[in-house]
Design a protein around this nucleic acid. Structure first.
Lengths: 148, 148
DNA sequence: CTTACTGCAAATATTTTGCATTTGG
DNA sequence: CCAAATGCAAAATATTTGCAGTAAG
C-alpha cells in the first residue's frame, strides 16, 4: 500500500545513486516515496509523512535528501508564495502552479496554456522561462469576488 | 537628491495614513523613499538603505512599515525565488518579474505579454491571476546555453 | 573494511512579538 | 495630553552545519 509504480522509481533511485558512488538508504527511499505521494509538500510535510514509517527520521536528513534528490533530477521545488518551498516528484513537473491568495489552495494547470507567453518572452528578451517551476498567484474561482 | 517626484508620494502617504487615524513618521517616510528608490528590495536591503539616513532605524520597524504600506496599497511584494520577498512601489506594479536561475538577476517585462495566458486560465479554471505579482523563473539570454 | 550517511545539537538566518518609552497630531 | 509608533530584546520559524557514531556495499 505504500507504493504503486514506485518499484520503478526505487530502481531509478538506486541506479542514479550508484552512478555517483552514493548509497541507497531507507531514509532516501522514504523521502522520495513521500514526495511522490504528497504533491507540493513542504520539507515539514515530508518530515511528518516519513515519520509515520520511521519516527526517528531527522529533519536535517530530510533537507539533505531533498537537496540530493533535486541534484539527481528526481524531484523539483517551487516557491509558492510566502512559506517554505514545496517539492514534487520530477516526472510530475509538467504543470503550472496556481496559488490562491484568498484560500491558499494550489491548483495545477496545463503548461500548454503558457505557450504564448513563453514564445513572446523569448522573442522580446531572449528569456527562457522554466514553465514547470512557475508559480502564479491570484484568486481561484471561489475566492474571486471577495474583498480579502 | 533624495527624491524626485516623491513630494507627491509623501503627500499620498500622509493622506492615506490620516484617513485611518495613523501617523506620518520620519521612519515611514524613509522606508517608502527607499522602496521607491531601490527596485525589488528585500527588507534587509531596505534596512541598509534607510540606515544611511537614520542609523538607528530598527529592522522590526522596517518589517512593520512594509506591511503597513502594503495594506495601504503603496507598495507590493513578490517572492522571487528562494530568498526573502522583495518590495517595490505600488505604482511600479505593472510588470512581470523574470528571475534568472543562472545569474540571479531580475528583469521586468510588460504585463501585456501575459494577456493570452490570463485569458486562458480564466476560461479554463476561473482563476484570476495577479499578474503584477507573478514571478517567472528561467534563464536570461546570457545564461541560456550554459549547463548550470 | 571503508567511506558515505544519519542523528543530534548547536549555529544561522529571517521574521514576529511583547513591552516600556517616545512622539505625532 | 493620549493613542500610535518606535526600539529593543526575546521568541518563533526555517534551514544549515560540524561531528561522532552507524551502516551500505
Amino acid at each position: 500500500m505504500s507504493s504503486m509504480a514506485d518499484g520503478t522509481t526505487a530502481e531509478d533511485l538506486r541506479a542514479r545513486l550508484h552512478e555517483q558512488g552514493l548509497r541507497l538508504t531507507p531514509q532516501r527511499r522514504l523521502v522520495l516515496d513521500a514526495v511522490t505521494r504528497l504533491r507540493h509538500a513542504t520539507p515539514e510535510a515530508v518530515s511528518a509523512e516519513v515519520r509515520r514509517t520511521d519516527p526517528g527520521l531527522n529533519a536535517s536528513t530530510v533537507y539533505r535528501t531533498l537537496e540530493l534528490l533535486e541534484r539527481l533530477g528526481l524531484v523539483r521545488h517551487t516557491h509558492l508564495g510566502s512559506g517554505p518551498a514545496t517539492y514534487h516528484a520530477g516526472d510530475d513537473a509538467g504543470h503550472l502552479h496556481l496559488v490562491c491568495e484568498g484560500c491558499g489552495r494550489v491548483e495545477e494547470a496545463d503548461v500548454a496554456l503558457a505557450a504564448d507567453l513563453v514564445g513572446r518572452l523569448h522573442a522580446v528578451s531572449g528569456f527562457e522561462p522554466d514553465v514547470g517551476h512557475m508559480a502564479i498567484s491570484g484568486r481561484c474561482r471561489e475566492c474571486a469576488g471577495q474583498p480579502r
